[in-house]
Design a protein around this nucleic acid. Structure first.
Length: 262
DNA sequence: CAAATCCTGGTG
DNA sequence: CACCAGGATTTG
């Protein structure tokens, strides 16, 4: 469920639940997870204290005593669920971490795409990712320089973590609507002004993300949350035109054909 | 660049 | 049954 705001929220919940506690058991309950996190890695984590939890892009980094590191990526459908040891485990539990004092953290993920890996001290190298969008590192000039090397449509480009970290399929559509830019616009043809507008829009949608309203809940109406995402056939909140869906690079993009211009 | 791939659902 | 799903890597 995770783009940058949701992963930030997840990391905060994890931090609250386990920072300072000792790992008693680490289990992988799905073959896919067992491949990423083999038996010897799971054993190596046991007995170590959890020092701190941080987020970089959509990656959660769990720093362990002595410098080892658990790298967690939720991909499409991952999330944390917290219970006590001995309680009924949650549905779709793929990785389970239990602390010595009885906290159980489950990585729940129906599609099992999530990745958890253990890295020895100093072994983890952060993949090449672009600037964090909510910091001063995300400048209009830098963004423009990166887009200048792109000859494809802007929307798939926004999903490339090397351009800017943390934007996913929902917020890409939302930001383009906010900036009034058509998702098929060729990235390197965007004017300086529009690149700046898009940068500001990315920041706006991530800053004002309704994370806690919908995250992990099924009683919210998606249609009330998003400006365009998932709203094909419904009226644009800005101009009233009928919103459209456009498949790009295998993903759905939603946009307003009237107020988002090329 | 886009498509296929990793998986397991939910929905029409 | 077909199609869709908030990600990212690999392949053509």
């Amino acid at each position: 469920m995770p783009e940058l705001p949701e992963v930030e929220f997840a990391a905060a919940r994890l931090r609250t639940a386990v920072a300072g506690r000792v790992i008693a058991r680490l289990d992988a309950l799905h073959p896919s997870q067992q491949r990423h996190l083999p038996e010897e890695a799971r054993r190596a984590a046991e007995g170590l204290t959890i020092d701190r939890v941080e987020r970089r892009a959509k990656i959660q980094l769990v720093h362990l005593q002595g410098g080892a590191l658990l790298e967690v990526h939720f991909r499409m459908t991952g999330d944390w669920e917290f219970t006590r040891v001995g309680e009924a485990p949650p549905r779709y539990e793929r990785v389970r971490l239990e602390t010595a004092d009885g906290v159980r953290v489950s990585l729940v993920d129906s599609r099992a795409f999530s990745v958890v890996r253990l890295h020895a001290a100093g072994a983890f190298v952060l993949p090449a990712i672009g600037p964090e969008p909510l910091t001063d590192d995300f400048t209009a000039d830098g963004f423009r320089a990166a887009l200048a090397r792109r000859s494809g449509p802007i929307k798939p480009a926004l999903l490339d973590q090397k351009l800017v970290a943390g934007v996913g399929n929902i917020y890409a559509s939302e930001a383009l609507w906010e900036a009034r830019i058509h998702p098929a616009t060729v990235a390197n043809t965007l004017s300086r002004e529009r690149v700046t507008r898009l940068r500001d829009a990315v920041r706006l949608v991530l800053e004002t993300a309704p994370t806690e309203r919908y995250y992990g809940r099924d009683d919210v109406n998606e249609n009330e949350i998003w400006r365009v995402y998932g709203r094909e056939g419904e009226p644009c909140r800005r101009c009233g035109a009928t919103l459209k869906r456009l498949p790009q690079a295998g993903r759905s993009t939603f946009y307003c054909p009237r107020c988002q211009r090329r």
